[in-house]
Amino acid sequence: MTRYAVYALPGALGDADAPEALRLRAAAEEWYAREEFRDLTAGARRYGFHATLKAPFRLADGTTEAGLRSAADAFAAERAPVTIAAPRVEALGSFRALRPGGDESAIDALAADAVRAFDGFRAAPSPAETARRRPDRMTPRQRELFERWGYPYVLDEFRFHLTLTDPVPVDRAARVDAALADEFAGVAGADVPLLSVALFVEPEPGAPFEVHSVHPFPRPQESRR
């Protein structure tokens, strides 16, 4: 069954996007294409370069894809661009991801708003989906969030990140970290404007997630001289 997600995708607007966002997305796509690490990026590539705002969900009864897209338009229209402050490669457990190197308050607020705004479109997880999440391994707070929002890493448990790898074995970590440092050296330290949110779609279970639609934030009009 089809699933949808609301993601932050730097560079989603193509030529209309910020140069820093386009460079970051290009570096990520080059990273995903590296043959020597493809076994360590299979999951990351399937979900696509992104940071999760609203985790993947099936549509609730009585909701439609067209309604979800309209809701994304309305959501974006009420927001302003935010900044991913100086993203840098970090380890998140055994994964590697790009994480902000500065203030995260605006991007955290955007994610919290998305969790709430799109929740009416989310079908409750099935017993099988719940079991795959391993609620027995969650903290009490994560379990509470999962039961309310369908995902444990939201609100106060949220950490903005742009995933780059699947779990990295300890014996390959040094090589992977060196390769990531090299790959992202040209974009390290630069603030990256986020000018939109994107709806992604997984057409069928196990299929790659695809960009369904991009929803730009309004931008202040350039002053006329």
Rank of each mutant, 00 (worst) to 15 (best):
L92D: 01
R88L: 13
R132V: 06
I84G: 12
A33Q: 12
L110Q: 06
P87T: 02
A60T: 04
G67A: 09
A111K: 01
A71Q: 04
R58W: 01
E30H: 15
A76V: 09
T63M: 02
E29T: 06
E78M: 12
P127A: 07
G67L: 08
R116Q: 14
A72K: 00
F158A: 07
R148H: 10
Y151M: 01
A55L: 06
F146G: 13
A85I: 05
E147W: 01
A128D: 08
A33W: 11
D103T: 05
R143Q: 10
R137G: 05
A28K: 06
E144M: 06
T130S: 11
Y47M: 12
L68Q: 00
E147P: 08
S126C: 04
A91I: 06
G62I: 00
D73A: 14
Y153F: 12
R143A: 08
P125Q: 08
A42S: 08
Q142A: 12
L145D: 07
D61F: 03
L98R: 07
G102C: 03
A33Y: 13
E147Y: 14
D39M: 12
Y153C: 08
D61R: 09
D156N: 06
L155S: 08
A109F: 09
A85Q: 08
L40K: 09
I84H: 10
L68A: 05
A27Q: 13
F118A: 10
H50T: 08
D61C: 10
E35H: 15
R137W: 12
G93L: 10
Y153N: 12
